[in-house]
Design a protein around this nucleic acid. Structure first.
Length: 385
DNA sequence: AATTCGGGGGC
DNA sequence: GCCCCAGAATT
């Protein structure tokens, strides 16, 4: 097979046609059977796309089924209270997406009579819908010839073109969108785009791409040069910032002290155990501006005076660019009644059995399970100061 | 162009 | 443990 020297690989009409043909044939036999595929219901597409932002297919599948049962159509979602939507989303992360989806549903009802528009401009104007998601909705649900570029397809495209520049640069993004736009066929765009994604997810994988079974291997410039294992190129990421925090599992008459975060920023409106910043970065805005010990911090946060016990466990988790070490202490209430302090919108005592009804972030949810497993974990040898 | 938004699965 | 993932909005 011969090509004119210096001609970009994707300028050849024959190359484009071959890719379309082979990819669609491959997809007919090897495409993934996912719950949101099939009838091309725009609501299912919108819902699944929102859930799939920076989230893996495996994690989304059970949420998708539950959410659809709870909110079967745009209207039921639009009419639901936000707290119900967030509860159905709990554990998926990026909770802004749930709020945006909720708002999008309301916009669709208010401005589009409850029907998801097939118009590029109108879809793009929905909250939470960017360039990728607009292309996905239009091509998957309406078979409009719109391109998509996301993690899977950009990897496939970068290899097909042997694109050796860091994918995050604006030049790279332009180049990949341009290539995607040229490749997407005038008809069957939905199948083509999903085929490209599936190929990236199952064959053209980040590490050890399975070129031997790839339908596009003979059309792939990276493969031809033998550099497929080194593509795509990504700039090294910065090391995470260290954070140290401490929280209390404060008990009084069998109830636990919980607080609700304010309606902005990280975990907006979520419930957690009273938590103070100890040192390092402060992603959750827990600092008081001066170092305080845990008992003083809890008093300022909740108005409740507590006696704090020894650390009973530590939790390490990542949040965006931070790595948090959370030290957990049991505590006993001494005096005072709960009222929300800085950064909080609520503070109250609740029976441990009711913890699952609150919307919790991952760390608090993990602790709630841990307590439920063995309520004795709230106790410690008291020395009676 | 950089940062802000989490969480889980896989290796 | 670390890496990665069907991005969008804001600055």
């Amino acid at each position: 097979m011969k090509r004119d020297a210096g001609e970009p690989v994707d300028r050849s009409a024959a190359w484009i046609c071959s890719i379309r043909d082979r990819l669609l044939s491959w997809y007919a036999e090897n495409g993934r059977d996912l719950p949101w595929r099939g009838e091309g219901d725009p609501y299912r597409v919108l819902l699944s796309e929102m859930m799939l932002v920076q989230t893996t297919v495996a994690a989304v599948i059970p949420y998708f089924a539950r959410f659809l049962e709870r909110f079967p159509d745009v209207r039921s979602l639009a009419e639901a209270p936000e707290s119900d939507v967030l509860k159905a989303w709990e554990g998926l992360g990026y909770y802004r997406r749930a709020r945006q989806l909720h708002e999008a549903a309301r916009v669709i009802v208010a401005r589009h009579a409850g029907v998801i528009p097939a118009d590029a401009e109108a879809v793009r104007a929905l909250p939470g819908v960017g360039r990728y998601m607009a292309g996905a909705i239009l091509s998957f649900a309406f078979d409009r010839p719109e391109p998509i570029v996301e993690a899977n397809t950009q990897r496939v495209l970068a290899r097909l073109l042997a694109w050796e520049e860091d994918l995050k640069t604006s030049r790279s993004r332009e180049r990949l969108w341009e290539a995607a736009g040229r490749l997407v066929p005038p008809e069957g765009a939905g199948r083509f785009n999903q085929a490209l994604m599936d190929l990236g997810a199952t064959v053209c994988t980040p590490r050890a791409p399975a070129c031997l079974i790839c339908p596009l291997s003979t059309l792939c410039e990276a493969r031809r040069r033998g550099i497929q294992d080194r593509l795509p190129v990504a700039a090294p990421r910065k090391p995470p910032l260290a954070v140290a925090e401490a929280c209390v599992l404060a008990e009084k008459k069998g109830e636990l002290l919980v607080v609700r975060r304010r309606e902005s920023g990280l975990w907006a409106g979520f419930w957690e155990f009273p938590t103070v910043h100890l040192e390092g970065a402060d992603p959750a805005g827990r600092s008081f501006g001066e170092p305080v010990d845990l008992e003083e911090g809890v008093r300022r946060l909740t108005g409740v005076r507590v006696r704090v016990g020894p650390e009973v466990r530590a939790l390490s988790y990542g949040v965006t660019k931070h790595k948090v070490l959370l030290r957990v202490h049991p505590a006993k209430a001494v005096s005072g009644s709960p009222r929300p302090g800085p950064g909080l919108s609520d503070a109250r005592w609740i029976p441990p059995a009711e913890l699952p009804t609150l919307t919790l972030g991952a760390p608090a949810r993990k602790l709630a399970r841990w307590i439920a497993e063995d309520p004795k974990r709230l106790e410690w040898p008291s020395q009676g100061r």
